Computed example of a mutant assay.
Amino acid sequence: MARQPRIEYPGAYYHVMSRGDRRERIFEDDEDRKGFLRVLEETCGRCGWQVVSWVLMGNHFHLQIHTPEPNLVTGMKWMLGTYTIRFNRRHRLTGHLFQGRYKAIPIEEGDYLLRVSDYIHLNPVRAGLVDWEKGGDVLKGYLWSSYLEIAGYGKPGLCAKHKARLLGWCGLKAKDHRAYRRRVSHLAVQERKDRGKGWEELRSGWCLGEEGFAEQILEQVGQGLEKRKKGSWAGGAVQGHDQQAAEAWVGQALKRLGWGEAELRRTPKSAAEKEVMAWALRRQTAVERQWIAQRLHMGYETSVTAAVAKLRKPHSTHRKIMKILALED
């Protein structure tokens, strides 16, 4: 049976879950978890994503994300691939890290986002990873979820843009953390009693929302189905947005360097300026290496790969150019 294409549209919310290959661990220690969160933050920067809630478990993760642009597939490809490369490099491994396709369910905005956030935050309860002996707010002891940020225990982080809205959907004010903690603690006790039952609508179906939400999605994406890119229902909007953002960045970089298109064409493909620009485009945008190689007149895409590898340990000339382009190492 052919795989169903991904559904992408501007302003979409998703519940995303991915599990380790053969259900093996994708996080061996806290450094891996910190590394994954760094990759997630980088993905948000590249693709404009916003995180509503998240949790990291031993062999899987859950994310609730908002994609202002229809670029779920592009972002997930980069995020999972980048984390796999860094995980394998750190642990001296090779091969796949994640199992098959990730799960991505579109969610209707509003109370359903709160429902999914509750499900995500209660994962440690279902897995038996909280200490009931201590009493009180048992989820406070689990460090690897967005609950700590939303409940007011930590500094603003990945969920800063949606925290107030999430509390608002609970009928609470932006800083009413104690009431939110009591609410989730009550849910945790109920979750323990019910043994994880009651989440059937989140575990089945291809979307989550009120009656008519599915029809709205299909109507919104239906016009682009005949011209869709392989594997998604976003049409050509994704590629166009990615290249537009990258083109704008190139224009600003050339201005800072004092270059025009003529200087860009005649400068050697291995010039430090081009290496830094290629590295920055791979880091800050979602365009492919082939596009970067053509736009920067660097020959083949392998030149872009080599530049990115070289910038892992930038030399002094690279650092001077990064300063000119207002880039951080």
Rank of each mutant, 00 (worst) to 15 (best):
R23D: 10
L63Q: 00
L225P: 03
G212S: 14
R6P: 11
L97R: 01
P314E: 09
G11H: 09
S303H: 03
H318V: 03
L40I: 04
E109N: 10
L114K: 15
G154C: 10
E275G: 09
K161D: 13
V73A: 12
V308E: 06
V16C: 06
E263C: 11
G100D: 09
G58A: 14
L187I: 08
G81R: 06
E263N: 07
Y147N: 15
V276M: 05
H186I: 11
G100K: 13
A127P: 03
A234W: 03
R195T: 13
W291P: 00
H186M: 12
G81S: 09
M298Q: 01
Q239H: 05
Y102K: 03
S270H: 15
S53N: 14
P268N: 08
V116I: 09
P156C: 11
K323E: 14
A286L: 15
I120N: 04
G58R: 14
G198C: 10
K320R: 14
E200Y: 07
G260M: 09
T84A: 03
Q50R: 15
Q252M: 12
W259G: 01
A306H: 08
W54H: 11
L40M: 14
K197P: 02
G141P: 07
A262G: 06
R6L: 10
L167W: 01
A104Y: 05
S145T: 14
R90F: 10
Q190R: 14
P106L: 05
R86L: 06
T94W: 12
I7T: 01
I65G: 05
Q243N: 10
L218I: 08
G58D: 09
A2L: 12
G258F: 10
L129W: 11
I324F: 03
F27H: 00
P268L: 12
F27P: 00
G128N: 11
L148V: 00
R312S: 09
Y14L: 07
K227A: 09
W144F: 11
E200V: 13
G141A: 07
I292N: 00
I105R: 13
V221G: 02
K163Y: 05
D118V: 06
M1L: 08
Q99K: 10
T82M: 11
E31I: 14
G135E: 10
W279R: 00
A164D: 14
E149A: 11
F98H: 00
T317Q: 15
A272G: 05
K155H: 05
A164I: 10
L148F: 02
E191D: 14
G141L: 06
P156K: 04
G136D: 12
R115K: 14
D30W: 15
R183Q: 11
Q99D: 12
E261P: 07
G258Y: 14
V238C: 14
A271F: 01
Y9T: 05
T317G: 06
R178T: 12
M57W: 08
D111W: 15
R92A: 12
Q239Y: 01
D131C: 09
W49S: 04
D242P: 00
K155I: 09
Q64E: 15
P10N: 07
A307F: 01
R183T: 06
H66L: 09
W233Y: 12
R319F: 08
E108I: 11
G224H: 13
N88C: 02
